[in-house]
Simulated scan of single mutants.
Amino acid sequence: MITGTLFQNGYICRDVDAAVAEFRKRGDVRVVGPFEADQSPDTPTGPKRQVTKLAFVWQGNMQFELIQPILDETGLYGAAGDEPMRHHHVAMRVDDWDTFRSALARQDLPVVIERAIEGDALKFLYIDARPAFGHYLEYVWMTDERWRQIGGLPA
């Protein structure tokens, strides 16, 4: 299922600080973070804890999400391996979460994690699209205020 507006490439990193430095060395970018996130998204087998060190690197309205797993009970992120960064997913922003979820229910790629942030400012999920595309697909709905908070430029 491909829908929404592509805005992000996600990478698993061994060291988020080193990854941010690499982006800064190679371009004029805006950076939000690094910061630590501790969350328990829903999975098909119930809530699982994830602790990650994150940074958002922006080039225009394209975001590079840098993820350093610290604890991942979901098994979603895995290790970066021998490389400093490994591509993991692309993310699309959708306008209407309920319409998106209805369409998603009619496709054959499984949801592996899902979470709604308190206050209903952001919702996201990952589907396992590795059999079709070689990576995960993340879908995100967020308010315009949350978009600005994570570093997105006004439309």
Rank of each mutant, 00 (worst) to 15 (best):
2 I>H: 04
3 T>S: 06
4 G>I: 02
5 T>C: 05
5 T>G: 01
6 L>K: 09
6 L>D: 03
8 Q>M: 00
11 Y>K: 02
12 I>R: 14
12 I>W: 08
12 I>Y: 11
13 C>K: 04
14 R>K: 15
14 R>V: 01
15 D>S: 11
15 D>F: 09
17 D>I: 13
19 A>M: 11
19 A>N: 09
19 A>Y: 04
20 V>C: 11
22 E>W: 15
23 F>E: 03
24 R>Q: 14
25 K>Y: 06
25 K>P: 03
26 R>G: 04
26 R>Y: 08
28 D>E: 15
28 D>C: 07
29 V>P: 12
32 V>M: 14
34 P>S: 00
34 P>L: 01
35 F>S: 02
35 F>N: 01
36 E>F: 05
37 A>N: 08
38 D>T: 10
39 Q>V: 15
39 Q>R: 06
41 P>C: 06
42 D>R: 13
43 T>Q: 12
44 P>G: 02
44 P>H: 04
45 T>G: 07
45 T>Q: 15
46 G>C: 03
47 P>I: 00
48 K>R: 15
49 R>Y: 06
50 Q>M: 15
51 V>L: 15
51 V>W: 06
52 T>S: 14
52 T>I: 11
53 K>N: 12
55 A>R: 03
57 V>P: 02
58 W>L: 14
59 Q>R: 13
61 N>V: 02
61 N>P: 06
62 M>G: 03
63 Q>Y: 02
64 F>H: 15
64 F>Y: 15
65 E>F: 08
67 I>K: 10
69 P>Q: 06
73 E>P: 08
76 L>I: 10
77 Y>W: 11
79 A>E: 14
81 G>E: 05
81 G>C: 10
81 G>R: 05
82 D>T: 05
82 D>V: 01
84 P>I: 07
85 M>P: 09
87 H>A: 14
87 H>G: 05
88 H>T: 09
88 H>C: 10
88 H>M: 05
89 H>E: 06
90 V>C: 09
90 V>G: 13
92 M>S: 13
92 M>T: 12
92 M>R: 12
92 M>W: 11
93 R>A: 10
94 V>L: 01
95 D>M: 10
96 D>S: 13
96 D>W: 07
97 W>A: 03
98 D>H: 10
99 T>W: 00
100 F>R: 10
100 F>K: 04
102 S>M: 07
102 S>E: 14
103 A>W: 02
103 A>L: 11
103 A>E: 12
104 L>G: 09
104 L>I: 04
104 L>F: 00
107 Q>W: 07
108 D>Y: 02
109 L>C: 07
110 P>R: 00
112 V>N: 01
112 V>P: 09
114 E>S: 12
117 I>L: 14
117 I>A: 03
117 I>D: 12
118 E>Q: 13
118 E>W: 05
118 E>C: 10
119 G>V: 07
121 A>L: 07
122 L>M: 14
122 L>I: 11
122 L>W: 07
127 I>M: 00
130 R>W: 00
131 P>I: 12
133 F>N: 01
133 F>Y: 14
135 H>S: 06
137 L>I: 09
139 Y>N: 04
139 Y>P: 10
141 W>S: 00
142 M>A: 03
143 T>P: 12
146 R>Q: 11
146 R>A: 13
148 R>A: 15
149 Q>Y: 03
149 Q>N: 14
151 G>L: 11
152 G>M: 11
152 G>W: 03
153 L>K: 14
153 L>H: 07
153 L>D: 13
